[in-house]
Simulated scan of single mutants.
Amino acid sequence: MTIEKKEKEISRKDFLKGVGASIAGVTLLGGVGGILTACSDQTTAEVQTTVEAKGKPEWPFPYAKLDADKAAERAYHAYLSKGG
């Protein structure tokens, strides 16, 4: 008695079809959660409350001159504290 293994070969075309279908499925399922969350009334109410509390920013934003040395120091410390 011999047990024969039947090896399944997959073509390049079939492989690419499977990968494409997987990516499309993950993309669609990942977007469903965002859509459902965005439709909730609670989230919309929270955003509106935050905007009303802070007020709308003026447009165009006023120009503020930056100190290059302070900006560099702040960026350096932020890089170190956040782990790169």
Rank of each mutant, 00 (worst) to 15 (best):
K13W: 12
K6G: 01
G30W: 11
K70F: 05
A64G: 04
G18C: 04
Q48P: 00
C39Y: 11
T44W: 02
C39P: 01
V32K: 12
S40M: 09
V26C: 13
S22D: 14
E73C: 00
T2W: 14
C39I: 09
S40Y: 01
D67M: 04
K8W: 15
L28M: 11
S40L: 07
A24H: 09
C39R: 12
K8Y: 15
K5F: 14
G55R: 06
A38Q: 06
G25Q: 13
G33W: 09
W59M: 12
A72P: 05
A64R: 02
A71R: 03
T50S: 13
E46P: 00
G18R: 09
L36W: 12
D67S: 04
A78Y: 10
Q42W: 02
E9S: 04
K17H: 08
Y79L: 10
K54M: 14
V47T: 09
G83K: 04
I3L: 09
A24E: 15
T44I: 09
L16W: 11
G33A: 12
E73W: 02
A53N: 05
G84I: 08
K5R: 13
K82T: 08
K65A: 14
R74N: 04
K17T: 07
A45T: 09
D41M: 03
D67P: 02
I10E: 15
S81E: 15
L28P: 00
V51R: 04
A21N: 10
A75T: 14
S11I: 08
T27H: 00
E52T: 08
E4I: 07
E58T: 09
W59I: 15
T27W: 05
K13P: 01
D69V: 04
H77E: 15
W59N: 04
I23P: 00
D67N: 10
A24C: 09
A68M: 13
P57M: 09
Q42P: 01
P60L: 14
C39H: 13
A38T: 06
K8P: 04
G20M: 11
V47Y: 06
E7Y: 03
A78W: 05
G30R: 03
K13I: 10
I3F: 06
K70V: 10
D14P: 00
R12G: 09
A71Q: 12
K5N: 12
A21K: 08
D67A: 03
K56T: 12
K5D: 15
L80Y: 00
E9D: 07
A45Y: 07
G33F: 13
T37P: 02
A64S: 05
S81Y: 13
W59F: 13
W59P: 00
L29H: 00
D67W: 07
K17E: 14
A21W: 08
Y79I: 10
G30F: 11
V26E: 15
G20V: 03
S81K: 13
T2C: 09
V19S: 07
L36M: 11
